[in-house]
């Protein structure tokens, strides 16, 4: 993972979001996989709905949406979240 990398929700993704209490379920039609996300993870994933982000962009967006400090702990979380979502096929790395 480098500072130049960006990620996006694959354009062909057909996602259905279902929010209850502080939890979110995302249904990914292409894989028929269903993912349960907590508030922080779903907030982070939702940041990509408005377009591609790099790690710093995700870090800032999450801090803003969650109204928490943009500190090292959040940066570590954002990095891990990208890795996890990419592994699940919910994000893809893009050039530039």
């Amino acid at each position: 993972m480098t500072a130049l990398m960006r990620w996006q929700i694959p354009p062909q993704s057909d996602l259905t979001w279902w929010h209850r209490d502080s939890q979110t379920i995302v249904y990914h039609a292409q894989s028929a996989d269903t993912h349960l996300l907590d508030l922080v993870a779903s907030t982070g994933f939702a940041c990509f709905e408005s377009g591609p982000l790099d790690l710093a962009g995700l870090h800032d967006s999450m801090a803003q949406r969650l109204e928490i400090a943009a500190d090292d702990q959040l940066m570590q979380y954002a990095r891990a979240l990208i890795t996890r979502l990419e592994r699940l096929g919910l994000l893809e790395a893009i050039d530039g």
């Binding site: 057909d14 279902w18 379920i25 249904y27 039609a29 028929a32 269903t34 349960l36």
Partner: peptide, 22 residues
């Protein structure tokens, strides 16, 4: 119990969840 984990639990008990898709 919360509804979201209940949904996940029921997916594991479904015979045709994947076939029905969305």
């Amino acid at each position: 119990i919360a509804q979201a984990p209940t949904v996940m639990k029921l997916i594991g008990q479904a015979f045709n969840y994947c076939e029905l898709g969305k």
